[in-house]
Nucleic acid binder design. Structure first.
Length: 307
DNA sequence: CGGTGTTTAATGATTA
DNA sequence: TAATCATTAAACACCG
């Protein structure tokens, strides 16, 4: 039972498994790959629950990284000093949570499991790592290009650049963190969790609608624990009952091929194109991430040697 | 030494 | 109820 005072509802355990939390973290960064420490940071910054018992859940998280094939390890390059490798999502893991529950996947992803129609998406971890490196380069250059397009949702623009065929199911993790998706049954997905998934917009959308909307000190009558996947306290910008925000989302519906499409790592939710700082005014987090002198993407770009 | 990564095992929760 | 998935604990190796 949540007690008033120090611990509030917001300290409740988020309705996300470690796998989904890790996927969120990875997807949140432009490079789609993060070192372990940054995954920790992402989770702790956004979910107060995980600011305690760190040894316990971090051990579990590491277990998940190693145990689940949906995560692949990308070794650092010589110009990327630091501890540990980068972790990324396997290009073929697709929408692991398309059933709508982020607590339990529909099916465990295994390499070599389902045949994948995309020839560009390799199944071997080594190839996948290389593939991701290449994708990161593409994204980076696209990012730079998008930076010169004022008044244009960079991510939306980029999605057309880096996501040629990357339609994601509404329950795709990227879409969840990009914008809250209202479940058909309201809160049916997470009954009693105190984690409503509706009437909320990702920070990006708020940024898109203008600055100054996110006032951390603003005393909004928000329910306890009423934060999004990013742990952000977000004003209700869309009105209750409306399922989808009238905002362009990087989703390219192709009804005929909705099923069976592989998840592509090139997918960039709009907000991801923003600088990491914009994700969380209250957290230095990713700003940070500069535990290593060179960010992966920057290092990648520096290492871009066309061949 | 501490952080990272791998692996095994036990247990709990959910789904088929 | 069996199968499957998630969580937790723990032991151990590797590496900067």
């Amino acid at each position: 039972m949540p007690r008033p005072g120090r611990n509030t509802y917001s300290d409740q355990k988020p309705p996300y498994s470690y796998i989904s939390l890790t996927a969120m973290a990875i997807q949140s960064c432009p490079d789609k790959m993060l070192p372990l420490s940054d995954i920790y940071k992402f989770i702790m910054d956004r979910f107060p629950y995980y600011r305690e018992n760190t040894q316990r859940w971090q051990n579990s998280l590491r277990h998940n990284l190693s145990f689940n094939d949906c995560f692949i390890k990308i070794p650092r390059r010589p110009d990327q000093p630091g501890k540990g490798s980068f972790w990324a999502l396997h290009p073929n893991c697709g929408d692991m949570f398309e059933n709508g529950s982020f607590l339990r996947r529909r099916k465990r992803f295994k390499v070599g499991g389902v045949p994948v129609p995309d020839p560009l998406a390799p199944s071997k971890p080594q190839d996948a790592a290389h593939y991701l490196q290449q994708q990161a380069k593409l994204r980076l250059s696209a990012l730079h290009a998008a930076a010169h397009l004022p008044q244009v949702p960079a991510g939306y623009n980029m999605s057309s650049v880096t996501q040629p065929s990357g339609f994601k199911h509404p329950f795709a993790i990227e879409n969840i963190i990009a914008r809250e998706y209202k479940m058909p049954g309201g809160l049916a997905a997470f009954p009693g969790t105190g984690y409503p998934l509706h009437n909320q917009l990702s920070p990006t959308w708020t940024h898109m609608y203008g600055s100054g909307m996110m006032d951390p000190g603003s005393p909004l009558p928000m329910g306890p624990g009423d934060y999004s996947a990013y742990g952000m306290q977000i004003k209700s910008l869309c009105h209750g009952g409306q399922t989808l925000p009238a905002i362009p989302v990087p989703i390219k519906p192709t009804p005929a091929s909705v099923t069976g499409l592989p998840g592509l790592p090139a997918h960039i939710p709009a907000f991801l194109a923003n600088s990491p700082q914009t994700l969380s005014p209250t957290s230095p987090q990713t700003a940070t991430g500069r535990s290593s002198p060179v960010a992966p993407a920057e290092a990648l770009q520096a290492a871009v040697t066309v061949h």
